[in-house]
Design a protein around this nucleic acid. Sequence first.
DNA 1: CGGAACGTTGACTGTCATCAATCTCTGTGG
DNA 2: CCACAGAGATTGATGACAGTCAACGTTCCG
Lengths: 250, 250
Amino acid sequence: MALPQAGMTASAPSVQTNALPMHRAGRPALPELLEGHGIAMKVRRRQRITFASSDQIYVVQSGLLVLSANAGSDRRQLLCLLYPGDVFSPAQAPPLDGIGMIAMTDCELSRLRASAFEQDQEATLLINRYIAESTSSMHARAMLHIARLSSLPSETRVAAFLLELALRLGRVSNDQVSCDLPLSRSDIADYLSLNADTLSRIMTRLKERGTIATIGRSRTIVKSVKKLCQDVPVCAATMALHAQQQLEAS
Amino acid sequence: MALPQAGMTASAPSVQTNALPMHRAGRPALPELLEGHGIAMKVRRRQRITFASSDQIYVVQSGLLVLSANAGSDRRQLLCLLYPGDVFSPAQAPPLDGIGMIAMTDCELSRLRASAFEQDQEATLLINRYIAESTSSMHARAMLHIARLSSLPSETRVAAFLLELALRLGRVSNDQVSCDLPLSRSDIADYLSLNADTLSRIMTRLKERGTIATIGRSRTIVKSVKKLCQDVPVCAATMALHAQQQLEAS
DNA sequence: CGGAACGTTGACTGTCATCAATCTCTGTGG
DNA sequence: CCACAGAGATTGATGACAGTCAACGTTCCG
């Protein structure tokens, strides 16, 4: 288990995006030597991880986590999604009340100490590079999320989010993506800064409009990825950031 | 000029924050060897920098820039503020239309190629570490910004933002912070995802309420930092992320 | 079978974006 | 020094949209 793997299998997306050519497809594989140092952790769905020491680094091997905080009066805010391959250290989190990670699915993590590699310069080099690339890509995702939150109407916002999650967790076939949502409605609402009620209304509208379809409570299908990317610029960027990495990892 | 310096002078903030203890105060100084490799760039206010190659890295030496994109139909979205000391590479930006940096003030940048250090392992080590720490801290700021956008009412959002900018660019004295805003109203609005009209109303309300005061068009004073931090949890985190780094830099 | 968590829907309210008009600064040229 | 122009900032009226509260339905669990 040297490579981080996606929580579910993924086939190659067959859709063309108009991503800027400058963008990197993925990052190099996490070297195995990390395995020797890290402590494997298994966390279960809904489990919460608080940051004990700032020296610790978490590597997501499988599953899905979110960074959570209590920003407002009592409202929980989900700030960031952590996918397999992501490296996360407390330094990347703001010092908000109730900051911590919450597992959305059963997860496998590696926990290691940032100072663990200082003897081995070669290893430090590789690992720092890996961390830098991971952190860069997470920053790009955060920027995309800000763009989604700020400049998209709520309906499009939800559609773009579902696309991201489906690209990461689901399977692509013939211009459709589908996945089982590991987040509940109120989780999604807390991430997209919507009300759960409003989110429910929006998803009903999206279904009526034919943008998405649902099976049961959690299975969700984005009907036409191509159309979504044409209509919404953010979705093309989502493809570039999420689908290509998926390609790399598989 | 080895160290990045703040655009304007900064005295030590005299206000206590309840930042979480785990949080790092700053990052180590950028080593001088970067100077040898980098190309110094001077950009003027309002000038736009597009990303030519993904191999390039920009280090902000002085001034203030923003990351900008055209996310929605025609609306410009300001995604991220870049302060002195920040390292920014195109990999940290999402592949959105019209992505680029815009100088809010006259700026000094160093531009270097990511692959420039590969011969010198010692240098690579230090620089990668610096980049990793910078990127981490930028990620934390992005998360804080998301929290601000998502879970604060617009009035508080503006106040929290003004606090951040004043802590970075202004001077602290006796529980007050003041600075000259380098951003126009519509810049601020585009960053906080508000309408410029609404922003104007909000600032009027903040003035009436005594939270802030203004002198002329751009000079802005946050009246009671302590009170703001007590009322708004995000502001305490803002102090932790921005005031302490200011301390470090000065 | 019952209960709890989750999801949906409706009526109402508050907030923010929009559009348009007016006002205030700032710099320029006479 | 003043007049002017143009950008930027404010203010008002209005409509669209999302949050709130409450009730009801559904699914999943013991």
